[in-house]
Design a protein around this nucleic acid. Structure first.
Lengths: 124, 124
DNA sequence: AATAACTGGTTTGTGATATAAACTATTAAT
DNA sequence: ATTAATAGTTTATATCACAAACCAGTTATT
């Protein structure tokens, strides 16, 4: 696909900043606690909670709510293999798009611009 | 800033896929026509129009509406220096965050996980 | 000349989204 | 007994992205 179209069509479930942060953090550890994740990302609890729900619904993470010593509630989160694949692929895609545009751009930077229309031609 | 927090706080005006596409495309040319930009990004007219308005309001682009041979309406768009700086910086930021996480992650991948809490410690 | 169809966009409606404030349920401290 | 803290969830709101509908001018068609 053309890089600009690919850019415009990025998966928003993954691309959204809070969720990209969550998924990227989770992809670096086997398990994370809710509060740890909150500290890491700097999100508010409410915000984190709703993003986690969204990610769970998309099968990108698994949420486990349990009690420590049958007393203290604790929510732990794992990334699924699907989630890991999605976030890895997303970063790859971003880098690859950036590369492809950098090359493309370099070819056009020194091109003169006799009129607006010709510039458009140059970049297609 | 910590990379995960930085990730969660990315500037959404720039980060949003359609606008990242538009800004990135504009940063590679001196001037672009509305229809050209539409073809490049694959956005619908309405969608492109409203994203452009938003970018203009944020001073990231300048929109010029005029007529060709006093007849055909034509909208041309330029990125401002502020816009160019913003999109360049955004890409830099993405790459730098990715780098910093890649390094960080590599240090933890082979670490064993005796219990959930210790994992959290490992990654802070 | 009248009308239909096309161009080049803008405005409007709506369903989804991100966010923090308010809330809940349990435990710990005084 | 009351107050405060913990660990989150639910709710309310303001914003957003998106495409369908619209509009004004221009070019074909009859």
């Amino acid at each position: 696909m053309l890089p600009y179209k690919e850019l415009a069509n990025l998966d928003k479930i993954v691309h959204e900043p809070a969720r990209l942060s969550i998924l990227t953090a989770l992809s670096a550890c086997t398990l994370a606690e809710f509060l740890f994740l909150q500290e890491l990302t700097g999100l508010t609890k409410g915000n984190l909670s709703s993003h986690l729900s969204k990610l769970e619904k998309a099968n990108l993470i698994v949420i486990d709510k349990h009690f420590v010593r049958k007393k203290i509630p604790q929510t732990t989160i794992r990334i699924t293999s699907e989630g890991k694949a999605a976030v890895d692929q997303h970063w790859k895609q971003l880098l690859s798009i950036h590369q492809s545009i950098r090359h493309h751009g370099a070819n056009n930077e020194n091109r003169s611009a006799p009129n607006p229309l010709s510039i458009n031609q140059a970049l297609t």
